[in-house]
């Protein structure tokens, strides 16, 4: 079952696996599975998942039915409201609005982040000089900049894109930089020994080596960009999923909030899965760690 990976301290990029950490995935050979029972084990697993899913459904339904509709609504009510939103088109238009912002912002972040990462990897002076500032920006909660953007640019498409970009840029740059910086000099040696020209070193060595790192950054950017999108829509928007939530909250329309939250969750899960797929596809040649 695919899952996001945990982080361990000392790793410069929170959210990305730290090499050499107490081995998520590469334990001592003695790591044992607990009492593996062949067919029963499988059924047991399926049962466990089913119980979990069913339990959630039941709890949601029961809690919802026994609370006032301002506090919580049942799963069935949520789903029927979702149906309403779909049939009157408001969900689709919200999705479109949200995703155009998201796509543009994340795409820009990937392009600029990759370029920035390569630049910083190549120019040691730049890196040395600006590193502390970049670390500060990476750690900064970008939400805090939203009011400034609102004051400067008001509502609209581009302020939101900028917010998404702010959230998504740094993981891309950071990871790309880390990759490009870590190219083993031995491999450059090999390329040079075959009289490879500078341009071809980029093509055959630097870029292929860096690509998996870039994809890790992309995976993180997809997640962070989503947070940025929602936050931007809370404050800078009259359209999109985030603004649906805000408006519904002002009406105490819990059913709508839950419905939209469900959609957002599904979107988030899908994006994470895509992110991981992309990352794995490009990390194919990496030694299994």
């Amino acid at each position: 079952m695919t899952q996001p990976r945990p982080s361990t301290p000392g790793s410069p990029a929170p959210g990305s696996p730290a090499p050499g950490s107490p081995a998520p995935g590469s334990p001592a050979p003695a790591a044992r599975r607990r009492r593996l029972r062949a067919p029963t084990g499988r059924w047991r697993a399926v049962l466990a998942y089913a119980v979990g899913l069913a339990g959630g459904v039941v709890v949601w339904q029961v809690l919802g039915s026994h609370s006032s509709s301002e506090v919580f609504v049942s799963l069935s009510a949520t789903l029927s409201r979702l149906g309403q939103l779909i049939s009157d088109g408001s969900l689709q238009s919200a999705l479109t609005a949200s995703f155009s912002v998201y796509a543009v912002g994340v795409a820009l972040a990937i392009v600029t982040g990759a370029a920035g990462g390569l630049l910083f990897a190549r120019r040691a002076l730049l890196r040395l000089a600006l590193e502390p500032y970049l670390i500060a920006l990476y750690a900064a909660p970008m939400v805090a900049l939203i009011p400034f953007l609102l004051a400067l640019m008001g509502f609209g498409f581009w302020p939101k894109v900028i917010v998404v970009w702010l959230f998504a840029y740094f993981p891309v740059q950071f990871n790309t930089q880390r990759g490009a910086q870590s190219i083993a000099p031995e491999l450059i040696d090999v390329a040079r020994s075959f009289r490879t020209r500078e341009r071809d070193i980029w093509l055959h060595v630097a870029i292929p080596y860096t690509l998996p790192y870039l994809m890790t950054g992309v995976r993180q950017a997809l997640a962070r960009g989503l947070v940025g999108m929602i936050a931007a829509e809370f404050f800078l928007s009259a359209t999109g999923l985030g603004s649906l939530l805000i408006i519904a909250s002002e009406r105490f329309d819990t059913a709508e909030m839950l419905a939209v939250t469900l959609v957002i969750t599904l979107v988030g899960v899908a994006l994470m899965a895509i992110g991981r797929l992309i990352e794995a596809r490009f990390a194919r040649w990496r030694v299994q760690q």
Partner: peptide
């Protein structure tokens, strides 16, 4: 090379062909 120096992202074919490709 002692460390083999194969490019991890290239297949065996790609690696063996490397000197020719780059020429």
């Amino acid at each position: 090379f002692q460390h083999f120096g194969l490019f991890p992202w290239k297949t065996v074919f790609g690696n063996v062909a490397y000197g020719l490709t780059v020429a």
